[in-house]
């Protein structure tokens, strides 16, 4: 079963002893079955908070406003028990760091059997044969033997494959990959991207890929949301974002991608300044202090979401349709 996902006016704040951290503010995103959605932005921009909210895994001190509608159900309003029943069934998360994602004292097979706990119709032997088949599908040779391995006996790349296999085993309508390649070296990263490109051909649910790596997003996604300081500042088709970026932040981000340089540079370019403190988000545009195109209203008036085409939007005073 798969349905559409839409977060509207979604805000998340963490209550801390030093005040509330407004990690996510008024985010609107949508995704439809068969689509791969990319979420990109620098560290601390709210990417992980967004997908953690989508997967109902926010810590106890998080407060949600707005709605997350999946398949017509508002996930943000479900009780803890109903949320748990969706996790690992309709919604699966591929964890960020394959090195620490698995329990170190249980075998891979043991854990993957447990992760299929929603499938009451299957016996242990059937679950194990599903695991073996899925491990083979994600490119793990000798799957039967690997199932009896402990996580530390597998390489990082292999563990990331197992993590993807684990998520696919639950046959989810919404698959979230949070930084799936960040902890891997470049060769492994290429292999995992290749694997995910293959998988998306046979998969018809929604895939959400979170990365700060523009190359990963460009390779895998249909549509991209660019996040900055807890807001979505630009969103659109992958081509529009990479070739016709309109928001100054997206443009600056693209200008800093080493993969796009043609000549060797003495120093890598950076965006000057630092993201704002999210305990007191600025009243105007969040990017204004670092923006080279900022003008009068940027410092005090929050910019509107400007619709540039059917799917391309940017939150900026300086852009016009």
């Amino acid at each position: 079963m798969s349905g559409s996902l839409a977060a509207s006016d979604l805000s998340v704040r963490y209550e801390t002893p030093h005040g509330a951290v407004h990690a996510l503010r008024h985010v609107d995103i949508e995704a439809h079955p068969g689509e791969v959605i990319g979420i990109v932005g620098e560290s601390g921009c709210g990417k992980s908070t967004l997908v953690t909210a989508l997967a109902n895994l926010l810590p106890a001190n998080a407060r949600i406003d707005g709605s997350i509608s999946y398949n017509g159900v508002d996930l943000a309003k479900l009780d803890a028990h109903r949320q748990r029943l969706l996790r690992g069934d309709e919604i699966a998360l591929v964890s960020q760091d394959p090195m620490t994602a698995f329990n170190p004292v249980l075998t891979i097979g043991d854990q993957l059997v447990d992760f299929q706990h929603h499938r009451k119709d299957l016996g242990r032997a059937q679950k194990r044969s599903r695991i073996a088949a899925m491990l083979g599908r994600v490119g793990i040779a000798d799957a039967e033997r690997r199932m009896d391995c402990y996580p530390h006996e597998l390489s990082g790349g292999m563990r990331q494959r197992v993590a993807i296999a684990a998520a696919l085993l639950t046959d989810p309508g919404l698959l979230i990959a949070d930084e799936p390649t960040t902890a891997l070296d470049v060769t492994m990263e290429a292999q995992i991207i290749h694997l995910m490109r293959e998988l998306r051909r046979e998969y018809n649910g929604i895939i959400i890929v979170v990365s700060h790596h523009l190359g990963v997003i460009a390779e895998l996604c249909d549509r991209v949301y660019v996040m900055y300081a807890g807001e979505v500042v630009e969103g659109g088709e992958v081509d529009a974002i990479f070739h016709d970026a309109r928001h100054p932040y997206t443009q600056a981000l693209l200008a800093c991608d080493p993969a796009r340089f043609h000549e060797k540079l003495e120093r890598l370019p950076t965006i000057p300044g630092t993201p704002p403190n999210l305990t007191q988000p600025p009243s105007g545009c969040v990017y204004a202090p670092r923006c080279d195109r900022a003008f009068a209203p940027c410092g005090s008036v929050a910019p509107p979401l400007v619709k540039l085409s059917a799917s391309h939007v940017a939150r900026c005073h300086a852009v016009t349709p």
Partner: peptide
């Protein structure tokens, strides 16, 4: 607080099972 517990949660395992099997053994 370890990431593998988050993984077990992300697959919707019941809390008693996470505590008694995934956490207690360590």
């Amino acid at each position: 607080g370890e990431p593998h517990i988050r993984t077990a949660r992300s697959f919707g395992l019941p809390e008693w099972k996470i505590v008694s099997k995934y956490a207690l053994r360590i």
